[in-house]
């Protein structure tokens, strides 16, 4: 068992070294497109912490949250139904394969035409993109519930909602969470891209504004912000995972 300091050392050593290296190497950069890190950090503070950019974070995260959660809810319901029924799977599989093969970003122009430049089109794009890994993983997780556990439930006459709650969902949860993790990272990408096309606010919109006005340190600071958001979200995901799947990791360590 490592001590807490040992763990912190392992986690932070490489990021800190890279950060310092960037800071030192870029210190007297005169390249317009690659400004000194110190300048970027100053821009970061002025833009995102106390400047106009701060107000752009919430709309982005809001759309991501709504899009992701809507997709998750749909994937869970549809995944359980399709995972439990081979007939339903056989009928829907070709359609899913087709939709999955369409890159969700190409839907942006289409959706813009239909629903304008408001939140709805961006939420739809985010949902459309992250629903597939969640749906397909849920189907697979539900489909592969252990047959002996199913028999056990049948023997003890556990049916319906209770069976769903005590057997199907917990058994599929490792797969479902895998789908959520992939879905979330796709969602973040689409959050940014959807704002780059036609938008009035959001992080992606702001970054594009900076780029168009040659505010290069500010542009870089936006990219830094996206990196930080990504790390924080995946950390939250990890905490969620640990609370839902503690039994799974315990069992896996044993075997």
């Amino acid at each position: 068992m490592k001590t807490i300091w040992g763990r912190l050392w392992t986690i932070f050593l490489v990021p800190v070294v890279l950060f310092v290296l960037w800071l030192v190497v870029s210190a007297d950069s005169s390249n317009f497109f690659f400004p000194a890190l110190a300048k970027i950090l100053a821009a970061f503070r002025d833009t995102w912490l106390c400047g106009s950019g701060a107000a752009e974070i919430a709309p982005s995260l809001w759309r991501l949250a709504v899009g992701f959660l809507a997709a998750f809810a749909f994937a869970l319901v549809a995944g359980v139904i399709l995972g439990s029924s081979k007939v339903a799977r056989d009928y829907t599989e070709p359609v899913f394969e087709f939709f999955r093969a369409i890159p969700p970003t190409v839907m942006i122009p289409v959706l813009l035409v239909i629903s304008g430049i408001g939140d709805a089109s961006k939420i739809a794009v985010i949902s459309l993109g992250c629903v597939w890994p969640m749906l397909l993983n849920t189907i697979e997780g539900v489909r592969s519930v252990d047959s002996v556990l199913k028999d056990t439930c049948s023997v003890y006459r556990i049916h319906g909602l209770r069976r769903l709650l005590v057997l199907t969902l917990p058994a599929a949860s490792p797969q479902i969470v895998t789908g959520m993790r992939t879905g979330l990272s796709i969602g973040i990408i689409l959050m940014v891209i959807s704002e780059m096309f036609a938008s009035r606010n959001g992080i992606g919109f702001t970054i594009i504004q900076f780029q168009r006005t040659f505010a290069i340190p500010e542009m870089w600071s936006g990219i830094l912000l996206l990196g930080i958001i990504g790390v924080v979200l995946s950390l939250l995901m990890r905490l969620f995972e640990m609370s839902v799947l503690h039994w799974y990791e315990g069992a896996r360590e044993r075997s």
Partner: peptide, 15 residues
């Protein structure tokens, strides 16, 4: 009726 299966590792709910 109750049944005890051969595959003990797969008949108990690990969660």
């Amino acid at each position: 009726m109750a049944v005890v299966f051969q595959e003990y590792g797969r008949s108990l709910f690990p969660w």
